[in-house]
Amino acid sequence: MIAFIFRRLLLAVPVLFVVISLTFLLMRLTPGNPFSADRAIPPRILAKLEAKHQLDGTLWQQYTRYIRDVAHGNLRDSTKYFGRTVNEILAQTLPVSATLGSLAFLIALGAGIFLGTYAAVHHDQAQDRLAMLTALLGISLPSFILAPLLILVFCTYVPIFPVAGWGSPDQIILPAICLSLPFAAAIARLMRTSMLEVLHLEFVRTARAKGLPERVVIYRHALKVAILPVVSYCGPLAASILTGSIVVEQIFKIPGLGPFFINSVLNRDLFMVGGTVLVYSVTLISFNIVVDALYFLLDRRIKLTS
């Protein structure tokens, strides 16, 4: 198991290298200059700014200098926010997004697994239809609709939550629900399909034949196998939910990383784009490793080889 994780981590290095290289080159080839503004900038000032951010010289020189810096853990300075390093911005914003994301992840997982199992157990009955209708709503309602609706209900009609902001525990509830709902719905549908299949397998019949109570059959025996597709879905889900969402974070004014994924591209904030892409790739790779390890723990028939 340790050897497996070690091998996978080693493999991640070339992947990250390719990701960083592609991001840098694509951003340099995209039209638009990081330093252009409403007022025209004299060419000599532009040259100074480019030199300051080591964007002078040939593309190859810029690229090699950047890769060298990244390898040393220096993600460079933001070109938009003067005097702020990308490391500093990530250190301030990523913990915020990750906190919100963890809660949303738990809600999505808890609600999704419960709803999906519930629907499968009550297959083709009214409960099943209701649960799946809820899931359908969750998938179809985008967060830019859901968030204002939640704000209208829980902040204006029944003012129990603050409209926006970050810092107190009551400020995390609405955004976490908003962020989790589409994923909870997706997990519920996945869970239902998988549980329906598992409930027809022989070991479930055996468990029932042993006279085990239905609750134990489902939650102790069936769930462990039925959850496998959900676990593999959880890798990419965790990576995307923990690194923040632009819509939810903007609407609830949460000082997280989410908006930087889009805005740093629009601002041509070159190194910030590199930083966000790196964070996302690292998170994604790590969670995929965790998922593979969990697979092994949940189902001993799976062998860990690369």
Binding site: P95, V96, T99, S102, L103, F105
Partner: peptide
């Protein structure tokens, strides 16, 4: 996953 980043 929930507790680790609770520094925000």
């Amino acid at each position: 996953a929930l507790l680790l980043p609770f520094t925000g």
